[in-house]
Design a protein around this nucleic acid. Structure first.
Lengths: 188, 188
DNA sequence: TACAGATTAGGACAAATGTCCTAATCTGTA
DNA sequence: TACAGATTAGGACATTTGTCCTAATCTGTA
């Protein structure tokens, strides 16, 4: 079964929005990628904003899918948090070039005061809630959300600086620090 | 002595680029703010990119000026780092609305692959270098830059999340954590 | 085969953008 | 006052943008 045009549009837009930003990506860019006529978008979407909506949905699904996979793959909540942190290492070359796909989208939509900025926030919220659940599972019931937010904040900061300074080595060092912090936070 | 038109353009652009982002800000927006004709920008600047250049210069100057003021105002390097961290509290309402002016600019310019992205990186670098000098002054000569990058990363992450979740209270909590971390890092 | 509905191509459209040009006005100096 | 240079207003310009329309083509079904 082939990919539908609609799916191709969403997936190309997903990548272009990440690489170039939402506003800086035009229909012409997506059309070039998918190799369809520009005027024909409107058979699949009512507007550019609606494409963004679908892209965020796609990212939400993929995120949940990945986190679900981790849930069955690792039995230990602590190790699952470690998997989350390891994501920074796995994606280090992309982070260097484009930053974090979630964080940069949220930042851009906040400045545009875009209708979908809240929806993009849910994407970040998915990771937040999942991390909090892992911390609860690891025995930190009372401050699980705060710990989750700390991991999230640290990850976002690492992404911004790796992008700004075009530095992958920094990611590795900072991840080591975060892992050390995690051991201490869960130790007591 | 009145502000020159050129200065007014730069200062309005500075604010608009922060609030709306660089690309999403047009000449029409700046012209509205400064109350001049649109066509008359080109007597002061050759292009929009040149306005951005001047805005970054302005931000560089202001950053250096602020850090210099701290240098004379506080004799203790540790207290100067605390002042840096306290900036997050002072600017919390703006951070919630627009994120960090430095971080969001660097992220945007990276996606645009803009000629000035390196220059914007220098802005971040100014804080990095200053923080590193403070850590050296506080007796952490061997890993001063790593500590500086850690403070910077944490600050950036806090800004991204405060913006994403529209949450000021989170800033206060995370700043407290960072101050605690600072005490420990300098204690040994 | 015939035909209805889905899909597509291609282009029209107004609005907005960055850029540039020219004529008017202001300002300081001789 | 007279005049040169700086500053400004206003609009022209080509390009790009998101949006929309229409005619052609494809696809599955009767």
């Amino acid at each position: 079964m082939e990919k539908t045009t609609r799916t191709q549009i969403i997936e190309s837009a997903d990548e272009l929005f990440y690489h170039r930003g939402f506003e800086h990506t035009s229909f012409a860019h997506i059309a070039d990628e998918v190799k369809i006529s520009r005027g024909n978008f409107y058979h699949h979407f009512k507007s550019k904003d609606e494409i963004l909506e679908s892209v965020i949905e796609l990212r939400l699904e993929r995120a949940k899918q990945m986190l679900d996979a981790w849930q069955t793959q690792e039995t230990n909540p602590t190790d699952r948090i470690r998997l989350f942190i390891q994501m920074l290492i796995m994606n280090k070359s992309k982070l260097k070039l484009y930053g974090c796909p979630v964080g940069t989208l949220c930042s851009e939509l906040a400045k545009l005061d875009h209708v979908s900025k809240k929806q993009a926030g849910k994407l970040m919220g998915t990771y937040r809630d999942w991390l909090a659940r892992q911390f609860i599972g690891a025995g930190c019931k009372k401050n699980a959300d705060e710990l989750a937010m700390h991991v999230l904040a640290h990850s976002q900061g690492i992404a911004v600086l790796a992008n700004t300074f075009q530095d992958e080595a920094f990611i590795k060092h900072e991840v080591r620090q975060m892992e050390k912090w995690l051991d201490e936070a869960l130790g007591k």
